[in-house]
Design a protein around this nucleic acid. Structure first.
Length: 284
DNA sequence: ATGTCGAAATCGTTTCGA
């Protein structure tokens, strides 16, 4: 199963690029952020023609998340309210369309567009921290149901120095401040892990380059788009990579897609072979 | 820190958010 996440910065502006990319990469599921379109205007027909089903949770101008999937959806949940029906805070935060979840292939997929926060002195930063506190209780619910969990999207947070082109200068500022890092780690809990770091421990792997100041040409990027997997899925990951070439396209999004390949659902034959191999080892 | 984008309204230039 191939799963991808991509902040497209307007699905209508990026439609042709996303369609070409789907044909080339052939993911089973693409999770979009910053679709920037109200639901009635989402260009779903174009995806259906390619054999993908579409679910969106959007709004005019800002935010907006969507699933593009060639596997069936079950138990779709829109916003924080989808899991926390009694939470007043969830309702309050629901004005901004940033959360979409569904069961796909028996995996609880949670697609997130975490608030940017703007600046540490901004009220938007307070909102970001509140939002992350709400995310923490939101993520506890599928975990309690015992669902295999994949949480992915644009987190607008670089968790470590190696995730930023200039950690000396940028640590402590927006997207790299201690309170938001702590809040995200707390929301993720102990079971979820960043699958990219299973395969790559070096710095200089970015998923976002600011449009401003020639960030792409100078390779001044950040790794803020992540895929987190619960342990049972983590052991099924074959590879995880950032498709950075896409950022060099004409009229690109400022983000590149991140892709994970899973051996899922588990390959029964391979399991038996492994078991047999283990058994014969045990006899020695 | 901000040299650029995308969307929408204040409409063909400015404002906001990132």
């Amino acid at each position: 199963m191939r799963i991808a996440t991509w902040n497209v910065n307007s699905i209508r502006s990026r439609l042709d690029q996303v369609l070409d990319w789907l044909k080339a990469i052939q993911p089973d599921l693409l999770c979009l952020q910053e679709t920037k379109v109200d639901d009635p205007l989402f260009p779903k027909q174009a995806f259906e023609t390619l054999g993908y089903q579409v679910i969106f949770h959007g709004q005019k101008s800002y935010n907006g998340v969507a699933f593009i999937s060639r596997l069936p959806f079950e138990d779709v949940r829109l916003g924080f309210l989808g899991e926390l029906p009694d939470s007043k805070k969830a309702e309050e935060l629901g004005g901004q369309k940033r959360v979409l979840s569904a069961l796909i292939n028996d995996i609880r997929i949670v697609n997130l567009y975490v608030p940017n926060g703007s600046d540490l002195k901004s009220e938007k930063y307070i909102y970001k921290l509140e939002w992350l506190r709400c995310l923490k209780s939101y993520l506890e619910v599928p975990a309690e149901r015992g669902e295999a969990l994949c949480v992915l999207g644009d987190f607008n947070i670089a968790l470590e120095g190696r995730d930023i082109h200039n950690p000396k200068q940028l640590t402590g500022k927006i997207m790299a401040s201690e309170p938001e890092r702590k809040a995200l780690k707390s929301a993720l809990g102990d079971d979820l892990e960043d699958v990219f770091r299973i395969f790559e421990s070096d710095t200089n792997h970015w998923s976002w380059w600011d449009y401003r100041s020639g960030a792409w040409d100078r390779d001044r990027g950040w790794r803020i788009d992540h895929i987190y997997l619960s342990k049972e899925l983590l052991s099924r990951a074959n590879c995880c990579y950032i498709n950075k070439e896409v950022r060099g396209n004409e009229k690109p999004s400022d983000h590149a897609p991140v892709i994970v390949d899973l051996n899922w659902p588990p390959n029964e034959e391979e399991e038996e072979e492994n078991d047999e191999a283990m058994n014969s080892l045990n006899f020695l």
